[in-house]
Design a protein around this nucleic acid. Structure first.
Lengths: 148, 148
DNA sequence: GTTCCTGCAAAGGTTTTGCACCATA
DNA sequence: TATGGTGCAAAACCTTTGCAGGAAC
């Protein structure tokens, strides 16, 4: 499912993206970004922390949160929209749908049949759209099945 | 923006909806539902709690959370998909978009020009779609403007 | 009368914050 | 060397949980 070339290209571009955003390039930021660029699982801060710590044993949770916030604010990452769950992040910007199970919280990628319908008219006159996320809420395969 | 007739009709139907869902009708549930049906601000559990407590001074936070969870699970309410924020709820099921500011967290309703593109093909063969939420992420009018 | 719901209060998990030290540019 | 980032640890939030008393059917 993951395009390795695209992933690598994204990681290679990271230093340039940082500089353009006025940010210093640090090992912590690079590791967080690379981890996100290499997966399609929409990981939470805690998952990112655990994964990144394998390569950078001294990184702290606080730093992960700060990096995620900053990169999101500068548009290098995106928070996946989920109904009232912990934050989930994504380094991929291609339009795709997310299916979120309202019972177990799992997120599946859904192939978009068409580009999401961006309201070109900029409805309120002032909203600067960075990303359009189409979120399917419902019950996943597992949670659909009768419990008992 | 709010259709008072529609709101009232929704509130009137609540007892019937509860019974159909196998739930008892209680003042707490009715109040939470009525509060949500009367607004388009996608309030958080805490906001709902404060508002409902004006009419039911003894209601507790725990009850509000339990009611919201249960009504959502039974399909009477919907959790609005937001990027890593506190939960937000909605009693309205008509298709509309949400624009979420990644800086201040505000949510604006956006008039949908067309119904969201539900993938009829049920992509993974097993996802039972209850609701499709289209979420615009970006910067709202206020947060766009230069800070200093 | 039975079943289910509520209120309370404590616990669990997530995210934010402040500050001294350190790395990048 | 100046600026900005990191690590640590505490605090602030948000949400869940368990249980005894009470309300709906």
């Amino acid at each position: 499912m993951i395009d390795l070339e695209k992933t690598q290209r994204r990681i290679d571009r990271f230093p340039a993206l940082c500089r353009r955003a006025g940010l210093k390039v640090t090992p912590q930021r690079s590791a967080v970004y690379a981890m996100l660029a290499s997966t399609d699982t929409h990981p939470s801060p805690d998952t990112i922390f655990s994964s990144v710590r394998e390569g950078l044993p001294n990184i702290s949770q606080g730093t992960v949160y700060k990096v995620l916030d900053l990169l999101t604010e500068r548009g290098l990452l995106v928070k996946v929209a989920t109904p009232g769950q912990v934050a989930r992040y994504d380094a991929r910007t291609e339009p795709h749908y997310h299916a979120v199970c309202i019972r177990c919280g799992g997120i599946e990628d859904v192939q978009a049949e068409a580009a999401p319908p961006v309201p070109r008219g900029d409805p309120d006159g002032g909203f600067d759209v960075h990303k359009v996320d189409v979120v399917l809420q419902g019950l996943c395969h597992k949670c659909r099945a009768p419990d008992a």
